[in-house]
């Protein structure tokens, strides 16, 4: 059984991301190791089977710009607070405690509102809205919210789960 690092190297070779000094060693292994060959063939087939896959919930602008807007608004609010000066001394103890919380509530509330908007808008617009994640090294999950479909794709090990075909399993 190939170890996880070796599997990742095979994936990296397929993606053209394997370090140049590691290529000869992997090529030598691929020439001799049938399991490594099977994995490479499997990954190539999987890549071939996926047509036009493009995932992602996209913000209308870059995440950095989005966050910088929130940061600027927080700073502006803090400046306003400083300019107003200290609160009158007669303010009650509970009022000052609440004011202390308000300092945090404003930025956190703003962020929560933005996240809520992204979540709700993300569910209702643009089809297909998908998320993908790797649950383990041999499977990934693709969820299409618009189509209400979850795909769990088993990329490794390769096998024919259909029927006992007369044709030999190519990757066994």
């Amino acid at each position: 059984m190939m170890d996880y690092d070796s599997q990742l190297k095979v994936q990296a070779r397929l993606d053209g991301e394997l370090a140049a000094q590691e290529v000869p060693e992997l090529e030598a292994r691929l020439a001799e190791d049938s399991e490594a060959q099977a994995l490479l063939a499997e990954l190539e087939m999987t890549r071939g089977a996926l047509a036009g896959f493009e995932a992602g919930v996209k913000l209308p602008e870059s995440p950095e710009l989005f966050w910088s807007k929130i940061q600027r608004e927080i700073r502006r609010e803090i400046q306003r607070e400083i300019q107003r000066g200290p609160k009158p001394a007669e303010a009650s103890r509970w009022a000052s405690v609440f004011a202390g919380w308000q300092r945090w509530l404003a930025p956190v509330g703003a962020v929560a509102g933005v996240m809520a908007a992204v979540l709700v808008i993300g569910r209702s617009e643009r089809a297909p809205e998908v998320e993908t994640y790797l649950a383990d090294s041999g499977a990934f999950t693709y969820h299409d919210f618009a189509a209400r479909t979850t795909l769990v794709w088993l990329s490794y090990p390769a096998d024919n789960e259909l029927v006992d075909s007369e044709e030999p399993d190519t990757l066994d």
Binding site: E77, Q102, A106, G109, A112, G113, M115, A116, A117, V120
Partner: peptide, 20 residues
Amino acid sequence: MSAKVTAACGLGWFCAALAG
């Protein structure tokens, strides 16, 4: 802190709860 900001953050929390 102004009443507007308090109202805005309250609205933010409300939206978050609704989204949840």
